[in-house]
Nucleic acid binder design. Structure first.
Lengths: 234, 234
DNA sequence: ACAAAAGTGTTTTTGCTACACCCATGG
DNA sequence: CCATGGGTGTAGCAAAAACACTTTTGT
């Protein structure tokens, strides 16, 4: 006996929700779908899982094809499996969300897939259930980032506190007090102050910080609490 | 065009991690596998996804087959898809964990599947990657229950505070102060004190409480914080 | 009467919030 | 010299933790 007889077999795809932060707002990388059905419409970057490939590998492959990036933060989001989510043939989609440093994204690759960054507030009409996927990813990102220091993954290796605060404010649609924010962030011990400053966005310049990789790995699963409770909603 | 040509199709199964609480410790419901390979070994309850069935439906079906229960708390855990996780043929497994009131579990059904409750601390050797699934489920349960009032799902409709505290202590392997615990729990406003007492586990008897369903649904997504921070590990 | 578990209140500590002024620099 | 954004300290408050005694009742 080498097969489970009589059982249905399904197509299985991966779809990647790729977050980037341009210093001002959160963005998502979308592509123009290259195959029927719905050819030409915007969609998440995805692909079928190969016969001997794990889901993680498939998602990493798809991400690399599109962005040129490897070893980036990537996490399984959810398995979407409604029977009719793809009208052509039943296809399950295992979704992954990733956080990338938008500056490392290789521009030239985008032409091949007609990729474009869209502000998460202005996502165009998408195929299938891709909008649901994005909504879920946004929620999970907020959930996770409230407890773990994952948002650093969206920033370049050297970043300033104002940049970091902008990022948190964008993700949570909140205004935070810079004094409280810096105290909280620095109290984690995860940041190492650099000697040089970023002079681009202000006259005085803001000190760069780097992540303390060792502590980052150690403390990653220590629950944090970055998000202030009161409804500081914008 | 009605099919995506050339792509591999996979078997897709669901597996259920079923948690129960017997008043003293957390347990998991396991079955003796009825088909080859690994026939006769302990495993999670699972089944293949039918052609026109969503993953959620499949998981609910499998759960009902085994326990007779419907409308219980159930949440997608993770999609396991390593190419060789099933030696016979590549099979993806979409896992769900559920929380059931162990007292409502129908005993007679267990014979059909040779089902048995095992303390989570004493799980026997399992097939495939089922142990990984359980580890992940335990972790997610701790994670989720730290923020949301899901553990009530494991208790009967009427329960006492000592029972509830036992449950939390079991899940987190921690000792909690009963004064702080009751204050915290009652401050959520989720519990309604009953007039009668449970006289089984003590001479004095402990008051029963019920969930305020309306508030439960309203407050479910309001982050809670049940678990004390310091390492009160046993 | 005593053992065993239930129930309850206060003090201390900690962490979060709110808040305002000075600094450095490029123009 | 001044406008702009960066950087820092403190006081008040609320939530969490630590902690001990009384109550009930079956045996």
């Amino acid at each position: 006996m080498t097969r489970y007889a009589k059982q249905t077999r399904l197509l299985v795809a991966v779809d990647c929700i790729i977050f980037g932060f341009d210093g001002t707002e959160m963005k998502l990388l979308l592509v123009k779908r290259s195959l029927e059905p719905e050819k030409g419409r915007w969609s998440l970057m995805g692909g079928f899982v190969d016969i001997n490939e794990s889901f993680e590998k498939a998602a990493a492959r798809v991400l690399k094809e599109l962005t040129g990036l490897e070893n980036v933060y990537m996490e399984q989001l959810f398995a979407f499996g409604e029977p009719n989510r793809d009208p052509i043939e039943r296809t399950a989609s295992i979704t992954y969300f990733s956080l990338i440093d938008i500056q490392q994204y290789e521009q030239q690759i985008s032409h091949e897939y007609h990729a474009e960054w869209f502000p998460v507030k202005k996502i165009p009409s998408l195929i299938f259930d891709h909008r649901d996927m994005i909504e879920m990813a946004k929620e999970k990102l907020r959930y996770k980032a409230a407890l773990h220091p994952i948002l650093f993954e969206l920033l370049p290796p050297k970043f300033t506190l104002p940049q970091l605060q902008n990022l948190y404010e964008g993700v949570y649609d909140a205004i935070m007090d810079k004094r409280n924010f810096s105290r909280k962030v620095l109290s984690t011990g995860l940041l190492v102050k650099q000697k040089d400053k970023d002079k681009l966005s202000s006259k005085r310049g803001a000190y760069y910080y780097k992540i303390d990789k060792r502590k980052y790995l150690t403390k990653f699963n220590a629950f944090l609490n970055f998000v202030p409770n009161p409804q500081n909603l914008k």
